[in-house]
């Protein structure tokens, strides 16, 4: 029958399309798994800063992380080669959490090295992606911002551990950094649910560090060099 034949032909063609897409998703999954593995290793290296002697070995820790970031760059290349033009966001969910985590780790390295906020270009360079979507496989702005919010949590923990390690200046530095970060985020009109929710956690992180600074202040342990 006519109708029936046309229908069958149409659906067979679509099936081919679906199968190809499914295969691609499978490939992406594998590529992302490798990236996640390296990400976990970087994170493990950077965890050292919370240990008693950690803050004295910052240079070494950062250097080691940067070596691993080189591997990430290669793995990102493998992944991004698989993604057809203009379909980044079609598969974005697959790697979004990995990229957020990498942005966070890159930001942590930069903060430890320079006490500065990582900019998007630097983050993109360290991870091995582009800044702008026009140029291809890039770091989405939301993901970069998510990374910064994860940084805030990590630094609030660092403030506590710095005091344990006897470093009383670091909490002040972190407090001032987080205060600025919070102001920065307040400039943004966050619509995105995930970002906004995470931003609420930032407020908690800021408060936590304020309490550390408070503990130092009231005991006269606050270094006076701070302005």
């Amino acid at each position: 029958m006519d109708v029936s034949d046309t229908l069958t032909a149409t659906f067979t063609e679509l099936q081919g399309y679906l199968q190809a897409e499914q295969q691609l998703r499978e490939d992406i999954r594998f590529a992302v798994r490798d990236i996640e593995q390296t990400t976990r290793e970087i994170q493990k290296v950077l965890q050292a800063i919370h240990q008693p002697q950690g803050l004295t070995k910052i240079a070494l820790v950062c250097e080691n992380s940067r070596k691993l970031f080189k591997d990430v760059q290669d793995q990102i290349k493998i992944l991004s080669d698989k993604i057809p033009a203009n379909q980044y966001y079609k598969y974005h969910d697959h790697w979004k959490f990995a990229i957020q985590r990498l942005a966070f780790l890159a930001a942590l390295v930069i903060f430890l090295e320079t006490e500065q906020l990582i900019d998007r270009q630097t983050a993109a360079d360290i991870i091995g992606v582009k800044v702008s979507k026009e140029d291809g496989f890039h770091v989405d702005l939301d993901d970069y911002l998510m990374g910064l919010l994860q940084l805030a949590s990590e630094l609030s923990r660092l403030a506590v551990n710095a005091v344990i390690a006897g470093d009383y200046a670091r909490p002040l530095q972190i407090s001032s950094f987080l205060g600025e970060l919070e102001s920065g985020f307040r400039l943004l009109n966050l619509k995105n649910d995930a970002l906004r929710k995470r931003f609420d956690a930032l407020k908690y992180d800021v408060k936590k560090v304020e309490e550390v600074v408070y503990d130092l202040s009231i005991r006269g342990l606050k270094p006076s060099t701070e302005t």
């Binding site: 906020l117 702005l141 920065g184 619509k191």
Partner: peptide, 30 residues
């Protein structure tokens, strides 16, 4: 209004000013 409270010389603030426009543009388009 913002100038009252935000330190416009801060590097972080400068960076975020840029994001503000980008995010708003995306959200508005959405």
């Amino acid at each position: 209004k913002n100038k009252v409270v935000v330190d416009e010389n801060s590097a972080i603030i400068k960076i975020f000013r840029g994001f503000q426009g980008e995010l708003d543009a995306k959200h508005d388009k959405h």
